[in-house]
Design a protein around this nucleic acid. Sequence first.
DNA 1: CTGGGTTGTGCCATCGATGGCACGGCAGAG
DNA 2: CTCTGCCGTGCCATCGATGGCACAACCCAG
Lengths: 314, 314
Amino acid sequence: MRTASRVLNDDARVADLTRQRVQDVIRDLSFTPDSMARSLRAGTDATIGIVVESVDDPFFSKLVAAVELAASESERPVLIASTRRDADRERAVVEQLVRRRVSGLLLAPTAGDHSWLQPILAHTPVVLVDRPAPGLAADLVGVDDRAATASAVDHLASYGHRRIAYVGDDPGIPTSRARLAGYREAMAARGLDVSGDLIRADCPDPASAAAATATLLAEQAPTAIVSGATRCSLGVVPLLHSEKRTDVAVVGFGDFTMADTLEPGITVIDHPADAIGTEAVHRLTARLAQRDLPALTIHVPVHLIRRGSGELPV
Amino acid sequence: MRTASRVLNDDARVADLTRQRVQDVIRDLSFTPDSMARSLRAGTDATIGIVVESVDDPFFSKLVAAVELAASESERPVLIASTRRDADRERAVVEQLVRRRVSGLLLAPTAGDHSWLQPILAHTPVVLVDRPAPGLAADLVGVDDRAATASAVDHLASYGHRRIAYVGDDPGIPTSRARLAGYREAMAARGLDVSGDLIRADCPDPASAAAATATLLAEQAPTAIVSGATRCSLGVVPLLHSEKRTDVAVVGFGDFTMADTLEPGITVIDHPADAIGTEAVHRLTARLAQRDLPALTIHVPVHLIRRGSGELPV
DNA sequence: CTGGGTTGTGCCATCGATGGCACGGCAGAG
DNA sequence: CTCTGCCGTGCCATCGATGGCACAACCCAG
């Protein structure tokens, strides 16, 4: 009935007594308005979707948590989906979300070409998180990976290190490539060895990072190691402990559990998942309010967390 | 038009040529059916909601990941929301999800009374995950916490330990209480000391667990420690390392990063978030297919993972 | 007694997809 | 020539909430 609708939407033309009676009935029947029908009528749905590699990953779970928090502040439900690093699956889940008419999308893209997404941008705003999508002109919220590893090198060099090794994961990933490039640049800028002997940039998991660290120690005698990813740190650090080589300085990219409880604590450049998530939601809501904004790349600042391992002298 | 609808729904009464032409037009206009309007019409929405304490928690992020995977197998989108241990917020997000007409709900409840949820069960199936909700008769998928810690004690006792300490978090939480009870029972069953001197069951974070462990070592000389939660293990283990007391046996409840790379590796009773998530989705879909199932408690088996720290002799 | 303000009510179109029903061609079989 | 598929098409109700529009009671002031 018309009056009920007035009560639901706080229309003024309802007497207090009637309003009260309607609300009583609502309670008695435990009536809850169907927000989907509502958004169908209104043509807008507040829901945002977030697509990541995997929720079961410390970085992405922090990211999702931050997104959920930021979204809840503007009363936006959050739909999650994961790609499992599979471009086909990514496309499938993105299309599913678009079919559901989410108001906007946050996407941590897989490595492949994303030009198929371009036409979707016309009606569904997309903000990329953490890494760019090849072939797609969209907002990107992430960190300056290149500057981050460069500052790790600078930090170690300021403690006198010259033989600084690098352990990173697959350079096929744009962010990994940028981190490696940052390391190389900073080394070169100081005239240090960048021949490649000190570089092990193909360690996609802790085990291979540990193995790479072992050969580095045996063959190259580095006095410091920059780890380009949390995944790598989880191989590098335990190996240094088991080999009793905690005298080797370490700066990791990406924080991890127990980094502060080990001895020495592991100095890291934190990968600020929460700041990225929050910023990405803000950018998305800004774009929702005004659709014709230019595609922007936003770099969230990173911070070096001194815990000891990065401040070891040569 | 009618024919288009036939094509969309694979109706047989369309000639192949026409079907092809319609599909061409669909592609040209990049038309995607609105699945919300669809579910409004159909009266059903496949989406399931999951409400946890926090996505940023290793256990819950694994849980959410497993749920998302299991749900995607039956083409169900997943809405997430977090309670942040706040009963009011929990209620708000649950009601939001119900308004959206999710087909079902997975809930890791906060501690308080949940009888307000009972009327909702009539139209929205709910499966509790990990822990019961006081005042609510609903399905529960979790582990047998009591048996798990009891088996930890048994395991340590089989290696000759008699002074087995317990470090756990807040016993206000039902699962923590059950774990402590399991420890007590197993100790009592073997005639071991359960006076309470060996028990520190009020450590809600790693720091307090570390402090508790320090006083235990100093005052009670335990030869083994059962840690009742991952949060506690992250305090207990680093303290044993920094005090050079890795001779003390440890069995933790809940796996954690680096547990297998430390020396010795930390023996844990796995808290199988993935199995709980998968099983919970199965139970929910079963209940969606048949609404009048009785409320069931399902215990997912736990496994002891031997890594060394639990197999140290006295 | 009348005009104006306040309220309750009914009717209906709209959002997008769906599907029942009926009808009009059109073809091949009998 | 007619009958029976087969197929394209138009019309309309439905899902639940919304809100414009009109209208009928009121009460109160002028």
